[in-house]
Simulated scan of single mutants.
Amino acid sequence: MRFHPAGKKIIRNTLWVALALNLIGWLFITTSFFSSLLTLGTLVMLVMVLQFFRYPHRPVTTDEKLILSPADGKICVIEECEEKDYLKTRCLKVSIFMSPLNVHINWVPVPGTVTFLKHKEGEFYAAFKDKSAEENERFCTAIRLNDGREIMATQVAGALARRILNYLKPGQAVTQDLEMGFIRFGSRVDLYLPTDTKLNVKLGQKVTGSQTIIGELS
């Protein structure tokens, strides 16, 4: 199993903590039951961290007419709304909630050119709640398509997510096989699409980043 570079430091620190706790248990805990319980607890902690930063190999089929899912997770919102950070127009919003068990890599949903990047400070409400889209810390990425239209993907922090990584740069040409970023420990990604987008997903559906077709552009 490969592990994502975003987790290199956390994996290393978790391993050291696990070793230290087990050493303390071996030296100072005389009861075998509690010693075994400590070992089991540190093992579970290490396995959870490793699975969180797993790095799957996914061949991506690019198509400029398709919107690919930017993340693994479950569709938690489908609605029309006003996008207020950059597009400032009515959009079709599709939100994907990522639990701590999902792969947390974020992929570029459409090919084009990056026109807007902005990190906004905010709160850390649970990512599945509606107010998280407006009030939580987030990172907005707008991409201009070849036909001039723009879509936006917003990485939203959650109650556990305290670090949003975004790898793109303004003016960068991007394709759907590129990683947009990474969010640590539970979060969501909001897509703001043209209102005439033909959706291929429904509320509650599980999606796979870079693989599931969210919709088709008219």
Rank of each mutant, 00 (worst) to 15 (best):
M152I: 08
E216W: 00
L38E: 12
E137T: 14
D85L: 04
R144K: 15
N136I: 04
A142V: 12
L46N: 06
N13F: 12
E82P: 06
L199R: 02
F124R: 14
V207F: 01
G148C: 08
C91S: 12
F185T: 02
C91D: 08
L117K: 11
V60L: 09
L68H: 11
I78R: 05
F116T: 07
W16E: 11
E83I: 00
N106K: 03
T62K: 13
I75Y: 01
I213F: 00
A127T: 02
P170W: 11
D85C: 01
G171S: 13
Y167D: 03
R58D: 10
R149Q: 15
E121Q: 07
G41P: 04
T208Y: 09
I11A: 03
S218Q: 14
P70A: 11
T14E: 13
L19W: 09
M45H: 12
K65M: 08
P111Q: 15
D196E: 13
G112N: 09
V108C: 01
S69C: 05
S32Y: 01
V47K: 00
N136E: 10
R138C: 07
E79Y: 03
L165A: 11
V44P: 00
Q172A: 04
T42L: 07
S210H: 06
L23K: 01
N146A: 15
E79S: 09
M98L: 04
Q211D: 13
A133H: 11
C91I: 14
L37H: 05
W26E: 15
L37Y: 07
L117A: 12
F52N: 03
L68Q: 12
K93R: 15
A6H: 07
